[in-house]
């Protein structure tokens, strides 16, 4: 069955070659006449102010943490979903308990305002 992965590897190789080829070809073909103004980061025609690596909102971090929890939940549900009809009501109850635990956490996060964007 492992030979089924061979075409994936081939396609992967082809697309890596393609990506590198595109970058190299454009590097070779295009002209490069740099001026200090051209090499400046674009900020609507103004001279850039301040540092780019500034702090950004903590909300993005909250989203990342919530993502880990709920994407893992979805991943854990997939094996059950595939065998759901064979496992029957026993599996259903088990998954319901698992989901209950996560829903409690979800409600807590919602009420705490962890999902708010204002």
């Amino acid at each position: 069955m492992s030979s089924a992965y061979l075409p994936v590897l081939m396609l992967f190789g082809v697309s890596v070659l393609n990506a590198v080829g595109m970058v190299v070809a454009s590097q070779v073909l295009n002209p490069r006449r740099a001026t200090p103004e051209k090499d400046m980061p674009y900020e609507s025609g103004m001279i850039p102010l301040g540092d780019t690596r500034a702090r950004f909102s903590v909300k993005f971090y909250m989203v990342a943490i919530s993502f880990i929890i709920f994407d893992l939940e979805a991943i854990f549900l997939i094996p059950w979903a595939v065998e759901m009809r064979a496992l029957g009501w026993g599996g259903f109850v088990a998954v319901s308990i698992f989901m209950m635990v996560l829903v409690v956490g979800f409600v807590y996060e919602w009420k705490k305002g962890g999902l708010d964007w204002e």
């Binding site: 989203v63 993502f67 979805a74 549900l77 997939i78 009809r85």
Partner: peptide, 17 residues
């Protein structure tokens, strides 16, 4: 993308069932 990946994964589970 990270936010909607959760919904994407969950929308596939009924298909697997």
């Amino acid at each position: 993308m990270v936010s909607y990946e959760v919904a994407l994964g969950l929308s596939l589970i009924p298909v697997f069932m």
